[in-house]
Nucleic acid binder design. Structure first.
Lengths: 145, 145
DNA sequence: GAATAAAAAGACATCCAAGTCTTTTATTTG
DNA sequence: CAAATAAAAGACTTGGATGTCTTTTTATTC
């Protein structure tokens, strides 16, 4: 469904959000350990997100990644689009270049229903809500059993 | 959403179905041209499907790919699983190894709703229905505008 | 200002999906 | 049986996603 980059990215950003609530900035090493993801790869992903202003970062001692006030209303869909683009929401399920309601592939209409639901679901969920689920112990971010 | 292999595979099998209704067997060259897919790659995909008995094939003159009576009730979901496996229906959206209703990732429940709809949609659609849409001119299989 | 700490940048490596091509095998037809 | 035809098998190449590591830049602290 999503790329590995996106999977790690979502987990990392949700984790950062759980810590930013307390004003903490997090280093890549701890983030990667917490979400059980490759450290350098996670760094690359987070740096790209910081460059796009989806999250924030600071260098040097006491530096790290965090989410500041004007970023904290981030919706899950915005994060996904920032990483993977909108292909999953707009591309044809059968890979047709010119597939639309007026020139549909054989499953265009059925897929539209599923995709609209996906888009609605991802639009309604904020990263903050996901972080809250983790903080309250109702959800997990790591791979461990 | 699906791999390229799966996209080409679905298009190819739907096209084969449109022809098998008339008892015709189709060669790879014509199939690939009809769905605008790479010829040798399409051959590889169809050979794998034939090996799994999802479709049928015959060698030599008058040979080609076709769908016989006991294969014609094929559902779209069966074709997808034969090519891509069931990862899309069962894997965690965030890539967690141990994600379940009792140990969920933060979007497990919301995703389940979307995925269940996807699975239902794909289970209800038969390849024959999709082929009918193409035959009746209501849908297309090629990339052209 | 020197030491330290952390992200930023970017080079490099690895893996797998995607795609290509050649050779072999099976079937049909004259 | 010989020629022709088409799938089957499998070797090979390519490209992009994934992953690793080193060097550079920036900020903090003493």
């Amino acid at each position: 469904m999503f790329s590995k980059t996106c999977e790690y990215g979502i987990r990392a950003v949700v984790y950062i959000m759980t810590q930013s609530r307390q004003g903490k900035k997090m280093g890549v090493k701890e983030i990667a350990a917490e979400i059980d993801a490759p450290e350098f790869f996670t760094a690359k992903i987070l740096q790209a997100l910081a460059k796009k202003n989806v999250i924030s970062s600071g260098k040097g001692p006491n530096g790290g990644f965090y989410i500041d006030k004007d970023q904290e209303d981030l919706k899950l869909i915005d994060l996904i689009i920032a990483i993977d683009g909108d292909r999953i929401f707009t591309g044809c399920a059968l890979g047709l270049k010119y597939c639309s309601s007026s020139n549909p592939c054989p499953i265009h209409n059925e897929f539209k229903v599923v995709r609209d639901l996906l888009e609605k679901t991802l639009s309604e969920k904020s990263i903050k809500e996901l972080a809250q689920e983790v903080v309250s112990g109702n959800a997990t971010l790591a791979r461990f059993a």
